[in-house]
């Protein structure tokens, strides 16, 4: 689905990614874990075409997407739920979802996906005409995920979906991520500081440090790895 080959990317003089290589197979859940500032968000932003790629290659379904405009990348089936959710605060919940389906023209399909996200998160149906900014943190996370799903992505990029949420809400969000993956065969690339939760639902994981991938393995092996435990799992 996705391959990054020795990608260097960043703004100005700062290279947030100093040679990141990874691959994601169709239908997988892959977690990217690492400390603050290690380059997790930049990896996702480079895939979405927001952070410019300086060298190396990003391949989506075998085609290079280097230098492609962000809207073209969305059109190729990549949606992102960014860090901090970035809800359009002055747009209603419904309008936020409309924006998620911005590039789609198939009305019937859009309606179907709207029903799907409302079934996934019934609270959003209740809040439909409220402004996005009036929602609670958990509801905003649901809205942000739903907005991304409205594009009917093949690859869903999730940046810190658990950040700032109550434990119960975190569990619900991770359960739904798993469900989206299973029911729609949506490939998921998950960035998390909450490494424990992320690795529990992921198939494989990558560990990033100072803009470089330092370790990759099956998720259960990473969970059992003493170095990972010490550095990221707090065990």
């Amino acid at each position: 689905m996705l391959a990054m080959n020795d990608v260097q990317a960043g703004y100005g003089n700062v290279l947030a990614l100093q040679g990141v290589s990874l691959t994601i197979q169709p239908g997988e859940i892959v977690a990217l874990i690492g400390a603050n500032g290690a380059g997790k968000s930049s990896t996702l932003m480079a895939i979405s075409g927001i952070v410019p790629c300086r060298s190396g290659q990003i391949l989506l379904k075998g085609k290079s997407i280097n230098g492609l405009a962000p809207d073209r990348i969305v059109a190729m089936g990549v949606s992102q739920v960014p860090e901090g959710r970035r809800i359009f605060a002055d747009l209603s919940v419904q309008e936020n979802l409309d924006m998620g389906a911005f590039l789609r023209k198939d009305r019937a399909g859009i309606r179907q996906d709207l029903d799907y996200v409302f079934a996934l998160f019934p609270i959003l149906a209740k809040r439909r005409h409220q402004y996005g900014g009036t929602l609670s943190g958990g509801e905003q996370q649901m809205l942000s995920m739903s907005r991304a799903l409205m594009a009917r992505p093949q690859l869903l990029l999730l940046d810190e979906p658990s950040m700032g949420l109550a434990p119960l809400m975190i569990r619900q969000i991770f359960r739904i991520i798993k469900e989206i993956n299973r029911e729609h065969k949506t490939t998921i690339f998950l960035v998390e500081q909450n490494a424990h939760q992320a690795l529990r639902i992921a198939d494989r994981g990558y560990v990033i440090e100072n803009g470089r991938i330092i370790l990759t393995d099956r998720a259960e092996k990473l969970l059992a790895n003493p170095d990972v435990q010490k550095a990221y799992l707090g065990i």
């Binding site: 960014p82 970035r86 998620g100 911005f102 594009a151």
Partner: peptide, 11 residues
Amino acid sequence: QDKTMALLVGI
């Protein structure tokens, strides 16, 4: 409201 997010939804 948010130019980066607008790009991310394909605007």
